[in-house]
Design a protein around this nucleic acid. Structure first.
Length: 271
DNA sequence: CTTTTGACCTGACAGC
DNA sequence: TGCTGTCAGGTCAAAA
């Protein structure tokens, strides 16, 4: 479920509750996620203080005394904080108990998520080091996008979703951003002009920022939420709207498949 | 090097 | 009520 805006909201929601706390207990119920959860966390994390939290792409980074806990929610992961720990569900795989009695619980039915540990700077972790630019950072400019797509034949949607180029744009927001930019998802990278790239970077930032802003309103309920901020009741322009009329021009939205991912676009608004 | 495909998992839903 | 097939918000490794 989590795309970048949701991970950002989770990060903001967790931050005030975790920073400054001490980990009192670690429970691993099912270690087989995308990578095995390191068994030694159970012994090594308790007693460590939490200094800071950060987000990089869709990874959540929790800085402790002796290293960093790296979390990824995959396709179906969710995190929630609770004061009174209810009995664990069969998909509740990992849990941190804090010194103030709160519990942070990871649920992930499909188990594509990850819980990792590193004692080094997470930026050089093998999974994070190859990541490209953060789409919301000042480094993600039309000029930058143009330089990377210029010599590539792959579809712009695939390029936007390539985390080694731009980190953290998932299927929903790739579709939505390209609608906002007025660019067809299957356009080969090297067909895009500098102006196209300016429009796309602006559209990516605006789309992500508005989703985060919409999610911000549910932030207040984060602790009590059932761990499912959902997609903030986003109303999408094209994603999931195959055959439905475009909100701008009423042309039926086209639904196709690129790679093995669903692609949606308005044949009139996106040329 | 770039691009595409397969794999990892479970659950929800449509259709028979 | 099953059963089967398809699809789902991610992303790495291997193949082409």
């Amino acid at each position: 479920m989590p795309e970048l805006p949701e991970v950002e909201i989770i990060y903001r929601g967790l931050e005030p509750h975790l920073v400054g706390r001490t980990i009192s207990r670690v429970t691993i119920r099912h270690a087989k996620l995308r990578y095995p959860i390191p068994a030694e966390l159970t012994a090594n994390l308790p007693g460590q203080n939490i200094y800071s939290i950060a987000r990089r792409a869709k990874y959540l980074l929790i800085q402790c005394d002796e290293g960093w806990l790296i979390l990824h929610l995959g396709m179906s992961g969710s995190l929630r904080l609770m004061t009174n720990a209810s009995p664990a569900d069969r998909h509740d795989h990992f849990e941190l108990a804090l010194d103030d009695g709160q519990h942070m619980r990871l649920r992930d039915p499909r188990r594509f998520g990850a819980v990792l540990w590193t004692e080094n700077d997470p930026a050089i972790h093998p999974l994070l080091r190859p990541l490209g630019v953060e789409p919301l950072s000042a480094a993600f400019t039309g000029h930058y996008l143009h330089t990377i797509v210029q010599q590539r034949t792959a579809a712009i949607k695939s390029l936007l979703m390539n985390s080694h180029l731009i980190a953290g744009i998932g299927n929903i927001y790739a579709n939505e951003a390209l609608f906002r930019a007025g660019v067809r998802p299957e356009t080969p990278g090297h067909h895009l002009s500098h102006l196209h790239c300016e429009k796309i970077t602006t559209a990516v930032k605006e789309t992500l920022e508005s989703a985060i802003a919409a999610g911000g309103s549910s932030l207040r309920d984060f602790v009590n939420a059932a761990g499912q901020p959902g997609y903030f009741q986003q109303h999408y322009n094209v994603y999931g709207r195959g055959q439905e009329p475009c909100r701008v021009c009423a042309t039926p939205v086209n639904h196709s498949r690129q790679g093995q991912r669903s692609t949606f676009y308005c044949p009139h608004c996106q040329q």
